[in-house]
Amino acid sequence: MTSKSDERHFELSINGNRHRVTDSYPGESLLTVLRDRLGLTGSKGACEEGECGSCSVLLDGNLVCSCLVLAASVTNCSVVTVEGLGGSTDVQTAFVESGAIQCGFCSPGLIMAATNLLERTPEPTVDEIREGLAGNLCRCTGYGRIIDAVQVVVQQRKNGRS
């Protein structure tokens, strides 16, 4: 059966919780709804066209730019944002400790992307890290410490610490 959802009032499943969205404008992105309607400001917006990756979230386990997702179209999906990671995953800790964070605006998106990359490719080569994170712009770090952070996680997981 074709299901139809109202585009202004709908429910989303985010980080395991159902959230009611009301009075959304037609065409609002998932990013806008997360930030402006639900107060989940961990996902950042820096381009609103899928170029910077700051708004990366997991949609049914897939990494997407939430700015390119029509919010009202994903009522039947499970969304995980940076807030859903819990705050102290090994990826997050490695980013903090490796110097991968400066201004930090790109960090939530990069952490989502790195988390997803390591799920898909548990032991990525440097090239695979680069290809996996190419959709996340960082203007501060020059990426060196970001690659380092991902490699730290890989090493820790191999050593059984996570």
Partner: peptide, 16 residues
């Protein structure tokens, strides 16, 4: 201004 989620070609064709 709803969003429709047809689940088959038949439903999609009908909707359009």
């Amino acid at each position: 201004m709803p969003v429709a989620h047809p689940r088959s070609i038949g439903e999609l064709t009908e909707l359009l």
